[in-house]
Computed example of a mutant assay.
Amino acid sequence: MGELKFFLELQIKQLKDGTFINQQKYIHDMLKKFGMENAKPMATPMAINVKLTLEREGDSFDSTKYRGMIRSLLYLTASRPDIMYNVCLCARFQENPKISHVEAVK
């Protein structure tokens, strides 16, 4: 069957030092899917001064697309546990996401 290289969107590399797992291809495909190929990388999982709240007013965003973004990020936590808190914080607003919530996800 050969050496295992991909399994459930996880890239697996087996070396003498050990087995390494990453999701680089999944991340690239996710960015392409949501039109964020040219997005700038950040050193922290979320902007520092962002305070997310339940907004009654403001421009709404497509909740289906927002849920897709959250779902993709939740799957990404398999190899990136450092983003778990931020993803769960953004997941609270899936019912009626606003533009400010989408900016935090991006």
Rank of each mutant, 00 (worst) to 15 (best):
L15N: 10
L15E: 05
K16D: 14
K16A: 07
K16L: 00
K16P: 03
D17T: 09
D17C: 03
G18A: 11
G18L: 06
G18M: 01
G18T: 00
T19L: 10
T19R: 03
F20Y: 02
F20D: 01
I21A: 03
I21G: 05
N22E: 10
N22V: 10
N22R: 00
N22H: 06
Q23R: 02
Q24S: 13
Q24A: 13
K25L: 02
K25Q: 09
K25T: 02
Y26L: 04
Y26W: 09
Y26K: 10
Y26P: 08
Y26N: 08
I27M: 09
I27Y: 10
I27A: 01
I27T: 07
I27R: 04
H28E: 00
H28F: 05
H28Y: 10
D29M: 11
M30T: 12
L31Q: 05
L31S: 08
L31M: 07
L31K: 03
L31N: 00
L31C: 09
K32E: 15
K33F: 11
K33G: 00
F34K: 03
G35M: 01
G35Y: 01
M36A: 02
M36W: 10
M36I: 12
M36Y: 08
E37L: 14
E37N: 13
E37F: 02
N38W: 13
N38T: 05
N38P: 03
A39I: 06
A39D: 05
K40F: 02
P41D: 04
P41T: 00
P41C: 12
P41Q: 00
P41K: 05
M42A: 13
M42I: 08
A43H: 12
T44Q: 03
T44L: 06
T44V: 11
T44P: 07
P45S: 13
P45L: 09
P45N: 13
P45T: 13
P45C: 13
M46L: 02
M46K: 08
M46R: 05
A47V: 09
A47M: 14
A47G: 15
A47T: 14
A47Y: 01
A47S: 15
I48Q: 15
N49V: 04
N49I: 07
N49R: 04
V50A: 12
V50P: 09
